[in-house]
Every structure is written in structure tokens, then in C-alpha cells.
Nucleic acid binder design. Sequence first.
DNA 1: AAGTGGTCTAGACCACGTC
DNA 2: ACGTGGTCTAGACCACTTT
Lengths: 254, 254
Amino acid sequence: MDVAPFLCSNLHMVRESPTFSPLYRQIKSLIFQALESGEWRPGQVIPSEQELAARFNVSQGTVRKAIDEMAADNILVRRQGKGTFVASHNDPRQMFRFLRLVPEEGDLTHPYSEPVDCWRAKAGQEAARLLAIELGAPIIIVRRVLKFDQKPVVGDEIYLPEELFRGLSLEVLQSWNSSLYSLFETRFGLRMIRAQERIRAVAADRAAAELLRVDDGTPLLSVERVTYTYGDKPVEWRRGVYSTVGHYYLNELT
Amino acid sequence: MDVAPFLCSNLHMVRESPTFSPLYRQIKSLIFQALESGEWRPGQVIPSEQELAARFNVSQGTVRKAIDEMAADNILVRRQGKGTFVASHNDPRQMFRFLRLVPEEGDLTHPYSEPVDCWRAKAGQEAARLLAIELGAPIIIVRRVLKFDQKPVVGDEIYLPEELFRGLSLEVLQSWNSSLYSLFETRFGLRMIRAQERIRAVAADRAAAELLRVDDGTPLLSVERVTYTYGDKPVEWRRGVYSTVGHYYLNELT
DNA sequence: AAGTGGTCTAGACCACGTC
DNA sequence: ACGTGGTCTAGACCACTTT
């Protein structure tokens, strides 16, 4: 698609149409399309602002504004003198971007994800609704534990549409020694853009108590997360329990 | 202060200095100064971009970029055709900006804040550290309950430096029928810019159980919040317990 | 030296709101 | 009709990185 016809004389018409969006947003969505199509992969450079401006027949400033917004959304990363890159979960700074747990004292140590189990199932009502798939559609369920300094702090049950994660198995999980999202990105080409968490307080049941090595009935955080990729498409649902004896959930409100 | 001398020939020198910041950031900090000094009050219009450009001897585009950032930070609010306004907690859309509680089902109803108690005290170690005041400095402590549809859901204990909240009393709190932050802004000229919450799971003690009408030992969210005004100055510390039987804490991760 | 993003400027035109 | 913010353009120069 080319944006040129919308310029100058035609812009007026476009502006009055109900679906009008400014040029830089059209450019933004064209860049999104290129990302979704895999034209530029996570970690790679995208073309320079000048090149994109020529490709889309707009000024460099308009491309710049589009990229500005995408950089603010953690979709692209600018590096002065080098270029603009597709954000990647393999980047150490992005690796645990969605993890809000902070140790009560001491430095922030990187957690270690220990896969426990991985099996196939059919989507129940809730999984189908949250993942926007058919009731009964094939899904993959993963159980894993997050450990900080060898200590289990988080127990997760993760629901994935099998269509997008073909080939995922306990062996694959065990052979990966980095974050889950970096595995998802590298192996399945899925980049997580944003997530939404619902947090409640619950009492530890027998299983959770054993897993996190706390007493039965200990209050835990229940954290439900739905994670979205490009186009606000949900691709992961996880239910976790967090022990908050040595850690807390930190949230910045802006 | 005038920025003109930094332009053109002198810019180079400034750029090489260790404290260099781009022009639009200098403008941003000048606008911050005007806000802190009370030159423009919450809810009011600030001068137009053209006027500010003339005042600071920069181009309109540079002022625009400064305002862009402040609008993204919820410090200013743009309204096309009308002007740029100082964000206010009296604005219905900002009133419960920091409250992340959402009902399990049904529409989002506005909570009602019921003050319970208000007394003077001296800052303990933790309050002094978090509020960045002297140990033993005078503070005000407020207890209140947040109710949704007449049902108590949150119990808060709020610690305020008395120096900034002179005259606050239970009567003042009871005579105010809007959000606490809108009271703080209107009565004490304090606008909250950002906050940080630490969340843990705890068991309800006797007092909390009675207050929130749940069983003794029910798991609750413990939410500690420090709230900051201009210049990252902490002005409020609150410790709350949230019942998550009919509500949950919703967090958007970006 | 050449290429990239980062800043700053100046001017044109559009959309929205008020008078 | 006028003033406000919103968009788009074009061009200059700076800072960082690589060749």
C-alpha cells in the first residue's frame, strides 16, 4: 500500500471521512504490518527514517513521529548513530519486562524458570474466552516454578493456544535457559507487546504450599495474566501464585 | 531565566558541558518551575504555545515538544481549540487515577471515601524515611474506609507531613465529598504526580476483618503507597488492606 | 567521511471551539 | 472571524557510530 494518493489535495477528503487518521498513524500501522509479516525480526535494524520516508512517500518528520510512538510503546528501540531496532525479549533489559516482583531486601537477582510439566488439553470456557479461541480448541498447559536464589517464589500455570506453539514440550522448555518470552519469540516468532494482570489475595492450598515451601493457608498473591501480541491478539493466559514473604509486587502508578 | 543566550553559537558549548540537556527539556523545567510556583493552578489554562515560545525565546515547535512530554506524564492536558490546561484531580477522569480496583462483575462504580479518624503524631522511622522528613517531625494520620455500593472494600491508614497539611482535621475530611487527592489539591495546593505501590498478601487481623466485614484470617491485599508531587517530593504514605472477594486489582503492563 | 538518530527552526494548512 | 492545538513539510545542524 502506498500513502501518496492521500497527500495534498486528497487529504481533505480523508480528514472528513469517519475513518480518518493522521498520516503518521497510517505510517505507524504500515510499520506494524511489516513487523507482523516478519519483514523485520526482533533484534534487527529496520530501515532508516529517510528510507522509510521515501518508501511511504512522506517526510522524514512524519516517519519520525510514527516511530516515536512505537518506541514509547516498547515496540521499537532507537539507538543514536546505529539505527532503529525491533524490540526483543532477548535484550537483557526487556527479558523480565513484565515481572514486577522485587526482593524485600538485597539486589534484584535474575529469577530462574524451572519447568515442571507440559501437556496437551482442550480449551475450557475461561481459557477459550481469554485466548479468543474456540471452546475445546487444542491448547498447551505448562507448569513452572520461578526461583530466586534457588528459592521458589512463583508457581505458574500457563495456557497457550497449541496452534501458535506447535512443538512446545517439556524437553524444549528444559533446554532453554532464559526467559519464557524469549523462547516464545525465538522459537515461535511471537513477540509480547502488553499484558494485563488481575491480582487477588488467596490462601495457599496444599499444592501451592508445597511448591512454594510455605505453610498451608499462607496468604499468597493470585496473579492472572493475559498477554497480547501485535494487533492486541491474546496469545497467553497464566495463573500464578506469588509468595510475598521475601518479595513484594512493585507497581508504578503514573 | 531566559534561554536565549544558549542558542546558536553558545549551544555548542552547552552541549559539551556535562549538564547539557536539550532546549525542550530546559523549557520543560521552566514550565515545571512556573507550575510549582503556582503561576498556573490546576484546572487553569496555561499560555498558548506561541506565547510561551515568545516568552522563552524559542520556536513554537520546541515548546510543543516540551508540552508533549508533560502531557504524556499527565501533568498537562491538551484540548484542541481551547488550549493547554494544568491537570487537576477535580477532573472526573483524573479523580481516581491511582485506584486500580475493579469490581468482579458489574460496572465500575465510584467509591465513597468515609473518614474514620484523624490525629496528630510524630514520624516514626519508616514514615520519616518514606516521606523524607526528620525522625519525630509532626505528621497527621488519617484512617478511612473506601466503600463501593455501601460495602467497605479498602481500609487505609494515611500518613501526611503536618507541615504541608496544616489545618487538616476529621471535620475537614467529613465535609469533603470527593476524592482525597482533590481535597489535597484544592485545600493544600498539592498535586500528586505519580505514586509507587508495594503489594503483598496478608491475613486479615481482627481490626481489618471487622472493618471490611470478612472473616478473621481472610487473605487480603496489603497495599503500601508513596505518592509524589512536583520534583519527586514524597508527600503521602498510605498503608491499605484491600478485600478481593468482590473486586480485583487490575494492572496494565506495558 | 558517511550514515544514523536527535534537536531546532520556520512556515503552511487543518480541525476544533468561542465569539 | 479568530485563536487554539494538531499535522505535515523542508532544511539546517549536532551527536553518536561505523567504515
